[in-house]
């Protein structure tokens, strides 16, 4: 992505901050939930760029750290509700990992930029709500302070 492109995404016409958020969506639930949201024509902000993974537990915490240190304003991990994971226990493991990760990030002032949500394949409406909630929360927080910092 060039600098020019980045500017386009960061600010809308009015010059307001438009966050760039990375979303990891589980194939079996949340990704299908996103699909349903689309089919049902629920409106939600376009700020989350989605990556489909086969299970929320496939998300290596390093990916989240890489995104945040490279300047993503937020990261969303969305998977099946506890008890509904396609691989039975994947999301329970995800929950522990994200809990640990967020604990660490609290010390760096970055914890509020990571979101863990459960969205099933039938929850199109909830998907739209989650995206809206996450986007608004990040707007409130402002841009990731590391976005422009290259000293570190």
């Amino acid at each position: 992505m060039t600098k020019k492109e980045e500017k386009v995404i960061e600010m809308d016409e009015k010059g307001d901050f438009e966050p760039k958020i990375l979303g990891f969506l589980c194939n079996w639930c949340s990704y299908a939930g996103a699909d349903l949201a689309g089919v049902s024509r629920y409106q939600y902000p376009p700020n989350v760029q989605c990556i489909r993974v086969m299970c929320s537990s496939r998300v290596d915490p390093m990916w989240i750290l890489k995104a945040l240190t490279d300047g993503a304003d937020g990261v969303l991990i969305a998977g099946c509700h506890p008890g509904d994971c396609h691989y039975v226990e994947g999301n329970y493991r995800t929950r522990r990992r994200i809990a640990a990760l967020k604990k660490i990030l609290e010390n760096y002032g970055l914890s509020d930029r990571v979101f863990l949500e459960w969205v099933s394949a039938s929850e199109g409406k909830k998907f739209a709500e989650v995206i809206t909630k996450v986007t608004n929360a990040i707007k409130e927080l402002g841009p990731n302070p590391y976005k422009k910092r290259w000293e570190i």
């Binding site: 600098k3 390093m62 422009k148 570190i152």
Partner: peptide, 28 residues
């Protein structure tokens, strides 16, 4: 290629990422 993202890149790179990664892998 990485420098393009922020306009400049500190060399050696990824200092914060490195420490955060070690934090995640070793903390428990």
């Amino acid at each position: 290629y990485q420098a393009v993202i922020k306009g400049a890149l500190r060399v050696p790179p990824d200092i914060l990422f490195y420490h955060l990664t070690r934090n995640m892998h070793v903390a428990s």
